[in-house]
């Protein structure tokens, strides 16, 4: 009886609610400048669910947007992970002098905001010979006239590209994931800025755009990757990608921080290639990974090339 009654009514409750929700969603979009690009961005599918043609459309749209915004041609590429490659990183703590050349080389390469300032690498300073357990007791604002200082050692920290990344698990929109070459990437168009991943990361490697990223167009690096160094938006999270725009090529350049290090403390290579320098150092040196006890399996190896 009751079902018959329902059918007799003109509008069903469910249909009405559906329509109302759609109407509200449409009204939420700014109608004045609702050009095709905005609609495309709003209804962009998840990166991994798009096919090649759809991705190409997105990249073209972004290049158009960036050109309009920065009055400069910026290429947004989407190089796929190379087969048989798992990136690994080595950092020689016995050689790092804490000069922060890597920090600023990274900013130049990866288009971070200058003001508010975003750095993907933090160099921590520790006193030699003291108990070295609490990373939060370290100093990151050190500023002596010259480095290295006799009584300190330095440890740069950036995204550790975990094999078991806690940040990926907590993301409610699946806007961050680990690619087959081991790089944990972020889709800035799907990031909703909830910062769960920042809370989950034990290394403090993720950074948040609290304001509109601010960078002079002439300082922008125009060679960008969709999942890497393309210009970001206000309210999204970003982090080190091992310079995905450089390394996912055949042949691919070393990450910017590797090339900037004046003492050659930074090493990079393919963990699956037995002849790579990263494998050499893992096999020949004392290595450790940061906070191994958390089961995150970082692919970032700290090591000591000579005894300290």
């Amino acid at each position: 009886m009751s079902s018959e009654n329902k059918q007799e009514r003109g509008v069903h409750r469910r249909t009405f609610l559906k329509g109302a929700a759609l109407g509200l969603a449409a009204a939420a979009l700014p109608a004045a400048d609702a050009d095709a690009s905005l609609w495309d961005a709003f209804f962009q599918k998840h990166f991994k669910e798009m096919n090649e043609a759809e991705i190409r459309k997105v990249l073209e749209r972004l290049e158009r947007e960036y050109e309009e915004k920065y009055k400069k041609r910026i290429t947004v590429s989407n190089e796929k992970p190379l087969p048989g490659v798992l990136y690994g990183y080595g950092l020689d703590l016995s050689r790092c002098i804490g000069c922060r050349r890597c920090v600023y080389a990274c900013v130049d390469e990866n288009n971070q905001s200058k003001d508010p300032q975003i750095h993907w690498i933090t160099v921590l300073r520790f006193k030699k010979g003291e108990k070295w357990v609490d990373l939060e007791e370290s100093e990151k604002y050190y500023n002596p006239a010259e480095v290295p200082e006799k009584e300190y050692f330095y440890m740069p920290v950036q995204c550790q590209q975990c094999e078991n990344p806690p940040c990926v698990r907590v993301c409610p929109t699946k806007a961050t994931w680990k690619d087959p070459d081991g790089i944990v990437v972020i889709d800035y168009n799907w990031c909703i800025g909830c910062r769960y991943c920042m809370a989950a990361c034990p290394y403090g490697a993720r950074r948040f755009n609290w304001a509109e990223p601010n960078r002079k167009p002439e300082e922008l690096n125009p060679n960008t990757h969709y999942l890497g160094n393309r210009p970001r938006y206000k309210g999204v999270v970003e982090k080190c990608t091992f310079c995905v725009q450089r390394v996912r090529k055949e042949p691919g350049r070393y990450p910017a921080c590797v090339e900037a290090c004046p003492v050659g403390a930074r090493k990079f290579g393919n963990l699956l290639d037995p002849d790579s320098e990263i494998r050499y150092l893992i096999e020949h040196k004392r290595v450790f990974r940061l906070k191994e006890d958390l089961n995150t399996y970082p692919k970032f190896y700290y090591f000591f090339a000579y005894g300290v």
Binding site: C261, V263, N270, E277, A305
Partner: peptide, 15 residues
């Protein structure tokens, strides 16, 4: 020689 000591630039999988 193994690429461990000192700075190297260029291609991680090339020259």
């Amino acid at each position: 020689k193994a690429g461990l000591h000192g700075k190297r630039t260029g291609m991680w999988n090339g020259e």
